[in-house]
Amino acid sequence: MEATVTHADTTEGRPFKASYGKMMIWFFIVSDALTFSGFLAAYGFSRFKFMDTWPIADEVFTHVPFMHGNPQPMIYVAFMTFVLIISSVTMVLAVDAGHKLKQNRVAWLMFATIIGGLIFVGSQAWEWSTFIRGEYGAVETKGGQILQFVDAETHKQVALSEFAVHLEDDFTGEGATTYSVAGVLKGFEEHGDLLVRTQKLTEDGHKTVLTRAESVAKLEGAKHVVEGANLIRNEYGSKLFGDFFFFITGFHGFHVFSGVILNIIIFANVIVGTYEKRKSYEMVEKVGLYWHFVDLVWVFVFTFFYLV
């Protein structure tokens, strides 16, 4: 035992001059990177398939905590990205301090990393809950198209609650929406200043707004009221958009979560002095690699979900 622990950091005579554990975490990361690329490529596939009807991310992710009703596209995800980059930096500084065998400094920096990770996971949970709750509501036609409602003058989206009416025979059982299709249609009739917006993108990248006559005709096909998002349909548009959002950010969030758990375990080991006895902080470096990988994946998720 003595021999193995004392020489854990020795790299002479090993392939690639890397220790076994470090090489294996690297190969795990390579395979995990391929998994994520598979998901993102599948997302790209579906997006190309519905190129001219895909939701516009800027209109979907506009929420910032404590600033309700004040749409701020991008700001919150930018904050999340920044948190993750910062926690990556504290991690790499912890690895650096580990090389110099500074136990206290490693502990504090790992603590900061864990806090960063928790802020990120919390932000993601909040993002999910806003996405699931939805903001405006929409109706779905028989053919599966999502129809949203906009003001005739400003072309800004109008929430169902601003015009739809409650009918007496509204279904109230499980899975019931706040309004029935008939209630939405009645409200639409009463409000002459409303128009329907389809998913179709125009040449300059905006959603198509129909005329009043076209809107009324289109609404004849309405079948469901959609509020927020679930795995079957979502009010933002293409069904696959919601599914991929849940799946990819969920899988990434799971990685962040397990990264936080691993960090906590290693943090505890640092505090009790396990690595001080070994005279090697290589374990910190290994979880560090995983943590940076999580950051690396987020950089791509950020680009493909929120920017492109």
């Binding site: 391929l34 598979g38 398939k49 001219d52």
Partner: peptide
């Protein structure tokens, strides 16, 4: 990664475009 990811992205995006 440099070989497999662009390859996968390329075939899936071309296919997606075809279905479009």
């Amino acid at each position: 990664l440099l070989i497999l990811i662009p390859y996968l992205a390329f075939i899936l995006l071309v296919e997606g475009n075809y279905i479009y």
